[in-house]
Write a protein that binds this DNA or RNA. Structure first.
Length: 347
DNA sequence: AAGTGGGACAACCGCCAGCGA
DNA sequence: CTCGCTGGCGGTTGTCCCACT
């Protein structure tokens, strides 16, 4: 490729950013947007490579970043998403508004990983290190693994949708340099209204799932129809999902991203107990009909409270809102949601 | 006061995918 | 299809700070 690595160019500065550099970068992006990161340093008068500027902006200077301590709920979300997705920090970050993937990754490595280890839980598999499951538990674990597989795919698709919907929302206005990394096509200084750039989160999906479940005719989206989509890639690719929706004559009066989300919900819900994808037919426990999103974040944004409301096998009792007071439930979920992506050849 | 070790977090590096020419 | 460029991602390293000896 012939491109010299960032920082190896003569005269380019490395290491911690100074307040002056921050101000230059901030001021430039506020005024012009970042445009091409490669060209930005020279234009902004910075002795840095473009990549360094981009990282500094996306991980630190961006105004839509929340800094400071992670809340308990954020930590629980990270752990649960990590169980589903593994080290896919960017995907996890889309479900934690205002947190960057780098921040989440650091927090995992320095806090959460160690905490899980202290609790005797393998941070990679999210399994207790010495724990033998009985036959019933193994069955539940297998079911939940399948569910986790689907949920992982859905979360990834959501992350992609968040990125793309942000771009779509920004397009008519071009750029608000301070708004987010998604403004990376930005080159103009057109003023923008405050846009709703919060990542679409699990509870949004839950809400939409609720809406389509009540909608007439949703049962038409049968397992057979869905199976024709074929591969997981085509399932999770928004464009394909969108086309599928059009082909099925679904309502067009929603914004694109909402329609796609609705279809994602449909992808999860059948009137039967199973649907097929590729060569695999999945059995879906009742809990699946509510979506694992309900497990992660219910309507009140509390974690793990609704898993026990479904007929989810051997998970008994009720997880309350407070983590400390409900460690057992927390352990149960960790025990059963064993869904390291590497376990799933589909991925 | 100086040295040391560890924690926390910022920043860098290398790889990869997507895109346009 | 290939090539080169760009930006994104995940893993790793560097730096700072603080507690402890």
């Amino acid at each position: 490729m012939g491109r010299s690595p960032c920082g190896q160019n003569v005269g380019l500065k490395k290491g911690p950013w100074t307040p002056e550099e921050d101000h230059k970068l901030w001021a430039y992006i506020q005024q012009y947007g970042h445009g091409s990161w490669r060209a930005l340093p020279a234009k902004a008068g910075l002795q840095r490579c473009g990549k360094s500027c981009r990282l500094r902006w996306t991980n630190y200077l961006r105004p839509d970043i929340k800094r400071g301590k992670f809340s308990l709920q954020e930590e629980q979300t990270i752990i649960q998403l990590h169980a589903l997705l593994g080290n896919r920090w960017s995907v996890i970050a889309t479900h934690l508004p205002k947190r960057t993937d780098n921040e989440i990754k650091n927090h995992w490595n320095t806090h959460l990983k160690k905490r899980l280890i202290k609790m005797g839980i393998d941070p990679m598999t999210h399994k207790p290190k010495s724990h033998a499951l009985g036959p019933d538990q193994l069955k539940d674990a297998a079911n939940l693994s399948h569910m986790a597989q689907w949920e992982g795919a859905r979360l990834e698709a959501e992350a992609r949708l968040v990125r793309e919907s942000k771009l779509q929302v920004l397009k008519p206005f071009q750029t608000q340099p301070s708004s987010s990394a998604s403004a990376h096509e930005a080159t103009t200084t057109a003023p923008l209204p405050d846009l709703p750039l919060q990542p679409l989160c699990l509870d949004v999906l839950t809400a939409w799932q609720g809406s389509w479940l009540e909608a007439p005719g949703y049962n038409e989206f049968s397992a057979g129809n869905f199976a024709t989509i074929g591969s997981l890639d085509s399932l999770t690719a928004p464009s394909n999902i969108s086309r599928k929706g059009e082909a099925m004559g679904l309502a067009n009066n929603f914004p694109d991203e909402i329609e796609i989300l609705q279809l994602q919900g449909l992808a999860y819900s059948t009137d039967g107990d199973s649907f097929a994808m590729g060569n695999e037919t999945l059995l879906i426990p009742n809990i699946m009909e509510a979506g694992l999103g309900d497990v992660l974040l219910d309507d009140s944004n509390q974690l793990y409270t609704s898993i026990t409301n479904g007929n989810s096998g051997s998970i008994a009792g009720s997880c309350g809102d407070n983590f400390e007071a409900n460690k057992n439930c927390w352990y149960n979920i960790l025990n059963l949601v064993n869904c390291s992506p590497s376990d799933f050849p589909v991925f």
